[in-house]
Design a protein around this nucleic acid. Structure first.
Lengths: 341, 341
DNA sequence: AATTAGCACTCAGGTTCGGTGAGTGCTACC
DNA sequence: GGTAGCACTCACCGAACCTGAGTGCTAATT
């Protein structure tokens, strides 16, 4: 019946909320007392039996209360929770804290700390990705007799450099012209258009010089498309040490997973592709062995409309989802705003 | 008597070595059996009483074995241990692993992981410091109507950038000339000489332009002297989760301390000043509340003779000092070699 | 004088063992 | 369908107990 179905979901919600708060398996009695469900504990027991049948909750052992399963949390997140709203005071605090940053590094670090603080969990901030950001400026610098330094400055303020070994000493005026034309060709373009524009530019050069131009073009596209350069910053790792995680078993694998930046990056980008808004992976959904008992909440941020990178919060599956989602969303929003200016 | 003094130190050494290996308080009996001291347990008991009197060892509780104190470890490190030598195979492995790095970031990361792996502890690598490195190249880039980007490239391959707001659109040819002269003035110079050279250069300009030149000079010296930009990379944090540290009490403060990069940096630079070679701080000697139960072993590394930065390993006070010292020294040596090329 | 053997003593850690109570599932009833 | 009542289960707790590693001291030995 629809009515009792509804109540069962209410019970599930109550279980999740209670368990998140107390960190103890929750029984039918406290459930009936503390949460205003308006039915007796016996009824709740029946509902719990059904919920357990469906895999939303489980018993750690007979004669203990129930604990939500990954599936239970998933249901809670998808259908049962309402996102907390931040007060304007909090919003202001976030904004001014982020606005105090002096450069990109600082912005990213501050965002991480802030998020870690707000959630009491581990925050992870991906640096604005090169691939999805545009080129603001390109510079060629003669380093020595036969070395050329290519410096790339992106939309988001990142600076990347690469050196090229040359066959012969470069001609200064030639380089000045080349730089101007490269900049004209590249200005503001995203990776895909950039590549064709650069190839076209190389074609206009005499075969003698074309080789060099092509090598520079290669360096540019390669650098911009290189995912491995993407960096991640963690904050609040210390929060793991309390959080009530089961220690030897749970903590070490998590720390290991966090240190594997490549794997983390994959997870983040994968999640970014799932949907545009806030994404939640619960327990085993992360597909990472080390994170089976943790959940991760992410969302994109970026200087303009579409996201250039991802920010997120990692904590035990038993975490405050509404609060975490709200915090991640809020920090991402102000982060985008700061980067946009 | 001298002979029994010697034996007492032998006993202390044996206690440290045994305790490091077994992680359990060591008693007089096993000591007499396992280590070739050639005396009975009763004698050792007497010696231990003296050692305890002098503060080198302590009992966790009555009827338990003895455990070295910070003072005991200090004695061990200073006078009782001989540094392990690496086999040439190991040396080669270290060198090739580091040589495989593609850029500075990669070198630093690899060095950290390597050291963490070798010691089974947390490795900390300070980025080559700006202050102590020279300027390889300087570049001026016009960003927009009124913005100038100053890019600095250091000896060690680091790139730093700063933007300047201008009163009026810059003159391109003026900048080209300025860039050439700045580079000439700055090339290869360390911070101190650089400052005077730049002031001298500014004086040669017409008052109209002098302001801009001075601002650029300020940016350069400021950036190069700015310690806060110094970064630290950690590796092997996961090793903390085993290591047999007492959890809630010991782990969290350590993680917190490790996240406070500024404090860590201070400790590293402080230690670098202590002496030129390998430095060891044991337990409370670190002066950091979070690290009272950990020791840190550091040494400098750098592209040329004198050190430009520090690398180190952090672990429980009860760690394998000879092994750790050897590892830190070896990695620092090859790190210097790589950076020197 | 230094070393050793012997011995009484201490005490942390493990084990056993009821007791307790939270929590459950089931059945009979409303 | 919801509720009350009840018998049953079992993790957790504390007490009592045992064990054995380790000690300090004293007296004998070299």
């Amino acid at each position: 019946m629809a009515a009792s179905d509804d109540r069962r979901l209410d019970v599930l919600r109550a279980i999740v909320e209670d368990y998140v708060q107390t960190r103890e398996p929750v029984g039918s009695k406290v459930l009936a007392e503390r949460h205003g469900l308006g039915v007796s504990s016996a009824t709740i027991r029946n509902d719990m039996a059904v919920l357990e049948e469906s895999g939303f909750i489980a018993q750690p052992h007979t004669s203990a209360g129930r604990v939500p399963t990954d599936k239970g949390y998933r249901m809670f997140v998808d259908r049962l929770s309402t996102v907390k709203a931040f007060s304007t005071a909090e919003k202001n605090a976030i904004e001014t804290f982020l606005a105090g940053a002096v450069d990109l590094d600082d912005v990213v670090t501050r965002a991480g700390r802030l998020l870690a603080q707000l959630t009491g969990q581990v925050a992870v901030v991906q640096y604005p990705s090169l691939r999805r950001s545009g080129l603001r400026h390109l510079e060629l610098v003669v380093l020595g007799e036969r070395r050329l330094l290519v410096v790339l400055i992106t939309d988001t303020g990142r600076v990347e450099q690469r050196t090229l070994e040359l066959a012969e000493p470069p001609d200064e005026t030639f380089l000045i012209g080349l730089r101007a034309r490269l900049n004209a060709a590249a200005a503001g373009r995203r990776l895909k258009e950039l590549r064709t524009a650069l190839t076209a530019l190389a074609e206009t050069y005499h075969p003698v010089d074309r080789d060099l131009v092509e090598r520079i073009a290669d360096v540019i596209t390669e650098t911009l498309s290189q995912e491995s350069e993407e960096r991640i910053v963690l904050a609040g790792t210390a929060n793991l040490a309390q959080a009530g995680m089961r220690f030897e078993h749970a903590l070490r694998p998590v720390l290991e997973a966090l240190e594997e930046q490549v794997v983390l990056l994959n997870l983040l980008t994968e999640m970014a592709e799932d949907s545009a808004g806030v994404n939640v992976r619960i327990g085993r959904e992360t597909q990472l062995a080390g994170l089976f008992e943790t959940s991760i909440v992410t969302t994109g941020y970026g200087s303009d409309g579409d996201a250039v990178a991802t920010i997120g919060s990692i904590g035990p599956t038993r975490m405050d989802y509404p609060g975490t989602i709200a915090a991640v969303r809020a920090v991402a929003r102000y982060l985008s705003r700061i980067l946009g200016s």
